[in-house]
């Protein structure tokens, strides 16, 4: 019954997403595409942050690697988009095999610092390697195939891929592997004594999360028509952190909701003031102080009966109490 209700909600949201472009203008379709891509990015980030309990400050590196993989394949080799998207996932995943190996050796602040350091390392390589990546000029002419040229068709293309990716990530989150991640987040030492090789599992999760970040990056290139090294920088790594905190990192859809709020507000507010960072900074402070479970944390405890979501209010309270 609970699951049926949940499925109904999700089906309704998907139906709304299908008819959305018929109602809104082209500018907002662009914003909607951006929400989908960044929502996928934020959800993949939350596999590490919400499920595994580690804060990555370098997740944009894998988004950027994915973007450059698709971009370079389109610009230099004219590889069709669906193949280059698959390549984006693979290249981002392979990078995570290497860098993740070192990152998962540490936890807490050291994990955050190491992901940040590797992120910046990759950023500087892309930034300096003019002959291959175009350096700080970026990569121009990353155009989607003709049938995806209009914003509307690219929206539907992105909607299908992001939905499929979210379903896969949702399934992983609900699987024994997903629960093993929650176990590691709650108590890694106990998980070890149950017989789990904690580092290896964290590494696998890091790789999966990076692959979906790579997919998001791959979708971003043809949408933006160009790619800049900024996509890999620590600044860009901070965005999914904001989104997850605003939406709520303890639920699967929290970061996506945070992404909707973040992207919509940014589009709206930058329309009449340049002080967007001031606004988002204020929002983050308010959320952290008064709603540590994020917006979805509040919503879920308020309309718990409606969503029949168990134990959410305890989880909301627990977010600031992970010192064990």
């Amino acid at each position: 019954m609970n699951n049926k209700k949940k499925l109904l909600w999700i089906a309704a949201i998907f139906a709304a997403a299908l008819i959305l472009p018929l109602i809104i203008g082209e500018f907002w379709v662009h914003i909607a595409i951006q929400i989908l891509i960044m929502g996928l990015f934020a959800t993949s980030f939350n596999m590490i942050f919400g499920y595994m309990g580690q804060l990555s400050f370098g997740h944009a590196a894998y988004f950027g690697i994915g973007a450059y993989a698709t971009g370079l394949l389109i610009v230099k080799a004219s590889i069709p988009l669906h193949f280059s998207l698959a390549a984006s996932m693979i290249v981002a995943g392979l990078s995570a095999v290497v860098f993740g190996y070192f990152c998962v050796r540490l936890t807490g602040i050291y994990f955050a610092i190491l992901t940040l350091a590797f992120g910046q390392l990759i950023f500087y390589i892309v930034f300096q390697w003019y002959s291959f990546t175009g350096g700080d000029d970026g990569l121009q002419g990353v155009v989607p195939p003709d049938f995806l040229f209009s914003a509307y068709s690219y929206y539907y293309f992105t909607l299908i891929i992001v939905t499929a990716a979210l379903i896969v990530m949702w399934m992983i989150g609900e699987s024994p592997f997903g629960y093993t991640m929650r176990s590691i987040r709650d108590n890694d030492s106990r998980t070890r004594f149950l017989g789990i090789n904690v580092r290896a599992y964290m590494h696998v999760n890091f790789i999966i999360a990076s692959m979906f970040a790579g997919l998001a990056g791959g979708l971003f290139g043809p949408f933006n028509r160009s790619i800049a090294p900024d996509l890999l920088s620590w600044h860009h790594s901070g965005i999914p952190v904001f989104m997850a905190v605003i939406g709520g990192s303890r639920s699967f859809f929290g970061p996506f909701l945070g992404c909707i709020i973040y992207t919509f507000l940014m589009a709206f507010i930058t329309g009449f003031t340049q002080y967007w960072p001031l606004v988002i900074g204020t929002i983050i402070i308010l959320v952290v102080l008064f709603a540590p479970g994020g917006i979805l944390g509040i919503l879920e405890s308020r309309i718990k009966a409606l969503l029949s979501w168990k134990g959410i209010d305890e989880i909301g309270k627990k977010t600031d109490d992970e010192s064990y």
Partner: peptide, 26 residues
């Protein structure tokens, strides 16, 4: 030394799934 945010049921299931070698089921 338990999993504080999981239910009692989920706590125990985690141990059993680990023992049954099902934790790499995605």
């Amino acid at each position: 030394n338990i999993y504080h945010t999981l239910t009692a049921y989920e706590n125990i299931r985690q141990a059993i799934l680990t023992q049954q070698k099902k934790t790499l089921n995605f």
